[in-house]
Design a protein around this nucleic acid. Structure first.
Lengths: 211, 211
DNA sequence: CCTACCGATCGGTAGG
DNA sequence: CCTACCGATCGGTAGG
């Protein structure tokens, strides 16, 4: 079917230079990329998609970014370093494995509820990074995995936890937190803190600790 | 740097019609697509990638498939229907929530260990389906989610399980199983059955059941 | 911040 | 199963 109205009211493309519109910032672009990457994935998102979301033409994005890949690596590396810092702070704040695991799980689950888009992009698109960004991301992820597993292994060795496999317990606990980003919605009945608290006690149950 | 050898030994493109090579089957294409989609995602995989993996030129794929989207929907719908059938069989095989949840978790975790590529594609690329395939996939997933959660809710109501939220318990248990596909490798020390057994008992711990 | 444009690649078709 | 080819779209550059 032909859209006749297109002839009468042709799409007017606004030129932001001459319109009285506030200029777009780098933060705006970052935000739009976050939403688009989380929704449709890195390869499912074109620069045109991002540009249109902030009201620009695609080439204008290059006033704010240096490349599409760079946008992805910013999101991924920012997020991973925050997550790891949260983990370290949680462990440092306590002196026994039970409280350390409870707190580490709490902040991890919480971050996935409060930063859904960022964590989804990390988990689905970090593998599409290349070169040094990819290495940095892999390093941070591996360190977090290693330290999380060590916390559990030590807790088992010292008799705080009961579990046949620190490896499986660690994967199970971390991944159930990661998945919060997939289903959590702010409009629901649950607040991020509620979810985080419940996940922390689920983590303790997984390693055999009951209150 | 110029690759001089390219001039001396130009890439010979084999024409499978005249070479003494067994013809490619639809199953070969399905296999190659599975590996490629799981590794790099649906939009990160081109038909040329899949064709080259089975030794064909890209247009020749159309002797085996009707479109790229159709290849994805086959993988996703096949996998989801198997997973749901496994769940129903597990529940039907037992008459109490504890055994039902143990068995349902066991088969779910097992499937993610033994069909890593299929389940990864479902979890990362099902959202890229369109039209009727997308609806079918969403329907099957929702039904599985609903029935899994109902199993847990009934178990709580009847006093078999202790947990403040069937919704959170259900998400946690299902998603920790889903993530098995991400880290499990056949060459490791653990067999799929070992992982599934451990995950089944983790699930029971999450809902407050200790042996 | 825009328009105009670049080479590369995409999924897919025609024809043999 | 191939070669030749299609229009569309991709990330990105030039120039103002």
């Amino acid at each position: 079917m032909k859209d006749v109205s297109a002839n009468l009211r042709p799409t007017r493309r606004i030129d932001r230079r001459s319109a009285g519109v506030a200029p777009v910032t780098g933060a705006d672009v970052y935000e739009a990329a976050l939403t688009a990457f989380a929704d449709r994935g890195y390869f499912g998102t074109s620069l045109k998609d991002i540009a249109n979301a902030v009201g620009l033409q695609a080439p204008s994005l290059y006033n704010h970014i240096s490349s599409k890949a760079d946008l992805l690596s910013e999101i991924v590396l920012d997020t991973l370093s925050t997550v790891f810092a949260d983990f370290e702070a949680a462990v440092a704040a306590h002196d026994n494995p039970v409280d350390q695991l409870r707190e580490a799980t709490y902040v991890y689950a919480l971050h996935h509820a409060t930063h859904r888009r960022e964590t989804m992009v990390v988990n689905q698109d970090a593998r599409h990074l290349e070169g040094k960004s990819l290495e940095q991301a892999q390093d941070m992820r591996r360190t977090h995995e290693r330290d999380f597993r060590r916390l559990i292994a030590d807790g088992i060795k010292d008799g705080y936890f009961q579990h046949p496999s620190p490896k499986l317990a660690s994967f199970a606990i971390r991944e159930m937190c990661v998945s919060v980003a997939r289903w959590f919605h702010d409009q629901g009945d649950l607040k991020p803190e509620d979810v985080a608290r419940t996940y922390a006690s689920q983590a303790l149950r997984v390693v055999g600790v009951t209150p």
